[in-house]
Amino acid sequence: MTDRPYAVTMARYNAWQNASLLAAAKTLPEGDLDRDRGAFFGTIRRTFSHLLWADAVWLARFTGAEVPPGGIADSTGLAADWSDFRRQRTALDADILHWATALPAAGPEGDLAWFSGATGRTVTRPRRLLLLHLFNHQTHHRGQIHAMLTAAGAHPDATDIWLMPDGSATGSGDGTG
């Protein structure tokens, strides 16, 4: 289940859903993005920001790149300039897809160790489990964003993976591009 085709499919799904949510958010007045809606991170903008930060952190851990600074508490302040945020989100989605297509056919192997700010200690877990976590975490917070956008009167696309357009992102889902 955590092989390259799975990762590529989920990376394509991630990009499609983020594009849908960003398009829906664009239809709202700017102030609506900052209205507290009772979600874990409060607002649409803060939840989008946390997800961008978390995706960047996990991708950096997987690739060995420098992990973005800050922690969960700081993660909600990255989206002050909405047009820059949209550019960063789109670029990161492309990076996630590129990473997924470069995975070994059988998926990631071995363990990954990192210092977890959330737990205050070094943690080691199988890379396959963390691959699942990356995409599950995205879906969790995108669900919150989708609900907040819908409540605000916006109309994001459906979220059913089987409705994902074939051309929503590059890659066929089989890892061959």
Rank of each mutant, 00 (worst) to 15 (best):
Ala79Phe: 01
Ser75His: 09
Leu163Arg: 15
Ala169Cys: 15
Leu129Met: 15
Gln144Ser: 09
Ser116Gly: 08
Ala54Tyr: 03
Thr101Tyr: 02
Gly177Tyr: 03
Thr119Cys: 03
Ala56Asp: 05
Asp74His: 11
Ser49Gln: 10
Thr63Cys: 10
Ser49Lys: 08
Ser83Pro: 11
Gly177Asp: 05
Leu129Phe: 03
His98Met: 09
Leu130Asn: 02
Arg46Glu: 11
Ser83Glu: 11
Ala65Gln: 05
Asp84Tyr: 00
Leu51Asn: 14
Ala100Gln: 08
Ile96Met: 09
Phe85His: 11
Pro104Leu: 07
Ala154Thr: 12
Thr150Pro: 00
Ala105Asp: 14
Trp82Val: 11
Ala65His: 06
His133Ser: 04
Ala102Ile: 01
Thr63Asp: 09
Gly117Ser: 13
Thr124Cys: 07
Arg46Thr: 10
Ser172Pro: 00
Ser83Met: 02
Ala169Gln: 12
Thr119Phe: 14
Ala56Ile: 00
Ile161Met: 14
Asp74Tyr: 11
Thr124Pro: 15
Ala105Lys: 12
Ala100Ser: 12
Thr119Arg: 15
Ala154Asp: 05
Glu109Trp: 09
His50Ile: 13
Asp93Gly: 08
Asp74Lys: 07
Pro165Phe: 03
Ala91Val: 08
Thr122Cys: 07
Leu52Met: 04
Gly70Lys: 04
Ala91Tyr: 06
Arg125Leu: 08
Pro69Cys: 05
His155Ile: 07
Leu59Ala: 07
Leu51Arg: 04
Leu92Phe: 09
Ala91Ser: 13
Ser116Pro: 08
Asp160Gly: 15
Gly77Asn: 08
Pro126Val: 12
His146Asp: 14
Phe85Val: 05
Ser172Asn: 11
Ala158Thr: 07
Arg121Trp: 04
Gln144Val: 03
Thr176Cys: 05
Trp53Leu: 12
Gly167Phe: 03
Ala56Glu: 10
Leu129Pro: 00
Asp174Ile: 06
Arg121His: 09
Ser172Gly: 15
Ala152Gly: 03
Leu112His: 00
Glu109Asn: 07
Leu52Asn: 12
Phe135Val: 07
Arg127Met: 03
Ile145Phe: 05
His98Glu: 12
Ala73Trp: 02
Phe135Ile: 11
Gln144Met: 08
Ile145Leu: 06
Trp82Asp: 10
Asp174Leu: 05
Arg46Gly: 01
Arg46Trp: 04
Ser172Ile: 04
Ala91Pro: 00
Thr159His: 15
Ala91His: 06
Ala79Val: 01
Gly64Leu: 15
Leu129Lys: 12
Ile72Val: 09
Ala151Met: 08
Asn136Val: 06
Gln144Leu: 06
Ala60Phe: 07
Arg142Ile: 12
Val67Met: 01
Gly70Ile: 04
Ala105Arg: 15
